[in-house]
Write a protein that binds this DNA or RNA. Structure first.
Lengths: 220, 220
DNA sequence: TGTTACATGTAAATGGTTACATGATTGC
DNA sequence: GCAATCATGTAACCATTTACATGTAACA
């Protein structure tokens, strides 16, 4: 088992335009790279489901975006040869990349368009019988509760790996990231609470309907 | 300039494929139409910012989607001539449309990809000084609090217009819709709380940094 | 006279997903 | 042999935004 991870220095940097337009996924990647160098594969794992805490993306978007950021000079990569693994490109953020990220972070405020498929479905639940709606809500609650548990696990794991005390000190390098991950969890908790409340209301209604039915009245 | 709002009956209905693929925006439109007929213009107002409670869209997406739904036979429209306004098309949902909406609502659960630009920004705030970060958070909190106030206003207005008691009865036709709108407000409240918490933590940090700089006691 | 509201579309470009494509290594 | 993990890319398609395009009426 000869393990000789070699480095072939080939840092590349391209000329950047005045204010090149970077999509949000680009800033999400820059934010990740600002705290640690990563390969495209690792970034894909950080940003792909189920680890979608802030901005979900797949590898087919990550790799082209890394090429874009490289063209802009916002990131640079090193080719790393591995002998028992495919070669990889380890990306890190550059000075201009840090500047671009800072400028983006400073400007705002940011309008966040709401695009929540299950909220649409929630509004459409009145097309179903209370019983059918209860089934849909039950399944959704299970899904979201699993996601919440996964985020909690990840937060604990994260804190242990980096020896972050509880509560994390506000001057820690990862403090803002942890706040954002917690927010993503809290948003899911808020959603799950709403689903549970609607479920309760509808099942109470279903029950009273059943009582009415057993008193010889026709449903719907 | 005679005032004669006429109706020219021209309900159209096209042959539908077996299981035509409808994007989420289509179901959002069907959900709106399931509770009341609307024109494309009205739908645009319901779905466009700032009234983006579940699924944001602009008119350039709404009109083509209505054409798609018409081709599928899920909606039908009436041409309504108005003399002191441009003519309009009033769309309503059809039987097959209701069926398609019900089938979509029943299946799931629905993975909701997280794609929140401000959460990315939140994680990137550590690139800024505490003072700069505090400014960004302050502006964002103002924005979101305005949106929350607008949703509350809309809910009150809605309840008054439709004579819905407080709390709304769970068997009301609009109950699921109201629940979804409340959820969209609660999600914004959760986000605002997180922004405020981070703001507090960072401004305390900023203050202690200032104390260190001035070698003086804490002001206030 | 200019702006807003009403009313409906299309075109071009960008953003994002799904599927295609390849290939080595580890473990069952 | 077969699946999973590591590793990187491209092509085709679908979804969304921004800009182009038009016209009337009410209001200030």
């Amino acid at each position: 088992m000869s393990k000789t991870p070699q480095k072939k220095a080939s840092k590349k940097r391209a000329a950047s335009a005045t204010h090149p337009k970077v999509p949000t996924i680009g800033y999400a990647i820059l934010t990740s790279l600002a705290h640690h160098p990563h390969t495209g594969y690792e970034l894909t794992q950080l940003m792909g489901p189920p680890r979608n805490y802030m901005w979900e993306a797949r590898h087919s978007q990550v790799y082209p975006t890394l090429q874009l950021l490289t063209r802009y000079g916002y990131v640079a990569f090193e080719d790393v040869q591995q002998d028992s693994r495919p070669d990889k490109k380890v990306y890190e953020i550059t000075g201009p990349g840090i500047e671009a990220l800072r400028n983006w972070a400073k400007k705002g405020p940011t309008h966040v368009p709401v695009r929540d498929e299950f909220s649409v479905k929630m509004a459409a639940l009145r097309m179903l019988s209370p019983g059918e709606a209860v089934a849909v809500l039950t399944r959704q609650i299970e899904l979201v509760e699993g996601e919440i548990a996964a985020i909690n696990l990840h937060l604990v794991d994260f804190a242990r790996r980096l020896d972050i005390p509880e509560p994390p000190p506000s001057d820690h390098r990862q403090f803002c990231l942890i706040s954002a991950i917690r927010l993503s969890r809290d948003l899911k908790i808020t959603a799950a609470d709403a689903y549970r409340k609607l479920l309760d209301d509808l099942s109470r209604q279903e029950e009273s309907a059943r009582v009415v039915r057993t008193h010889a009245k026709r449903p719907r």
